[in-house]
Design a binder for these strands. Structure first.
Lengths: 219, 219
DNA sequence: CACCTTCTGAAACTCGGTATCGTCGGGGTG
DNA sequence: CACCCCGACGATACCGAGTTTCAGAAGGTG
């Protein structure tokens, strides 16, 4: 019963690859899949949706993972939630790469992918606003937005490398990228220094300036 | 000759406001403007384009401003280029706010606006990749991407506040937001630490990751 | 006047997407 | 077995965005 859906996806990708996205009509897809136009639009809703399945699923899983996070554990919650997306694409394998080639060449699909990315970003941002609220942060909106966009962007850089076949182990690169994002962003006093603190003091620095820097970092 | 174009824009915004974007047909717009359907599509190309004029102009001005920047002056180039967009919207006044209300309520228009934002971001990213190349940065791609997306995001936060009528002086907020972005982002050896660098390392971090973080901070 | 360019209107056409209706098969329930 | 019920499918008509083509009006130039 769901093999009809699979046939439509297969036919669509094949035709898009053969003659391009715009040049392929839904008529041709359903003809090759052996179903009617009605069935196609009932199953996918739009021509673009054949390429982007499982979007709501991933979004729901992200929301669920973020919901279990607290103010103290928000970093690991964010990293793991972001990993869900990465794992989704890695699990798709060659299908993800086919989709990538399509989205690179068709503006409409590119925009669509960007829009879904914004959806992810929105989930991170909303949770971060809650977590950052009441931390004495002078501009919660801005910093939540910056951190959310940083996480999504870092994730995308790593993902895109894997999609293009360049780079090494995506999981290792992902960890590094996440570290880079959090290393460059202050997220309020809840980043309790529960570990080592490294202080680099340039020569010629006054004690007062040093003290101020320490106070600033631990605030 | 160009007053026909203005009439179409005016009619479109009025009808969108009266009965919504989707419920308004191009037929109705051209009827109110007193022109033919052909004229409309010749002037705008699509129904969405009535709402987003001058997009290429701004993009060209940004590219021009960024082209005059050098590796040493890239910060001021980026800030000023970003200001071009802000000034464009501020100059539009109430028209920008009408467009904002529309884009908030119509998903298709929201996606379209996001896509154009990505266009700006791309300009910043490409230039930053050049400027960051050869600075010993371990991951130019990632850092260029992060900085570019940070600048655009910070700009958007300030712009959105003004569009919604909240907040104070947008220009002052813009300066603060830009400072926040550059304060949280390492951009290579040109950020010589003229003060103390305090690095707080989370407890669960591996020695290798700690060393990498320290190296990164001092780079 | 003849000629050319440019803008405009009219109409036919393509295609994505929606809505409606009839039909078929399969699976309980009496 | 007979009945019905319901979810899925197909066919068709329809709407609206966007493209293409052609014909004509306006305006400048020789």
């Amino acid at each position: 019963m769901s093999q009809a859906r699979d046939r439509m996806v297969e036919a669509a990708f094949a035709l898009f690859d053969e003659q391009g996205y715009d040049a392929t009509t839904v008529e041709q897809i359903v003809e090759r899949a052996g179903v009617s136009r009605s069935t196609f639009f009932r199953a996918f809703g739009s021509k673009e949706d054949v390429i982007f399945p499982r979007h709501e699923d991933v979004q729901a899983r992200i929301a669920a993972r973020l919901a279990t996070g607290t103010r103290e554990t928000h970093r690991v919650a964010i990293v793991e939630a972001s990993r869900l997306v990465l794992d989704q694409y890695l699990g798709e394998g060659e299908l993800a790469r086919s989709r990538y080639r399509l989205t690179r060449s068709v503006p409409a699909l590119r925009d669509r992918e960007v829009a879904s990315m914004i959806g992810y970003q929105r989930l991170f941002r909303e949770r971060l606003r809650e977590w950052l609220a009441g931390t004495g942060d002078a501009d919660v909106d801005l910093h939540a937005e910056l951190l959310a966009v940083g996480v999504v962007t870092a994730h995308n850089v790593v993902l895109r490398r894997w999609l293009r076949g360049v780079g090494g182990d995506p999981l290792a690169e992902f960890e590094e990228a996440m570290a880079a994002v959090f290393a460059t962003t202050r997220t309020g006093p809840h980043d309790e220094p529960d570990g080592a603190t490294v202080l680099v003091v340039p020569s010629g620095m006054s004690p007062a300036a040093t003290a101020a820097a320490v106070r600033d970092a631990l605030r």
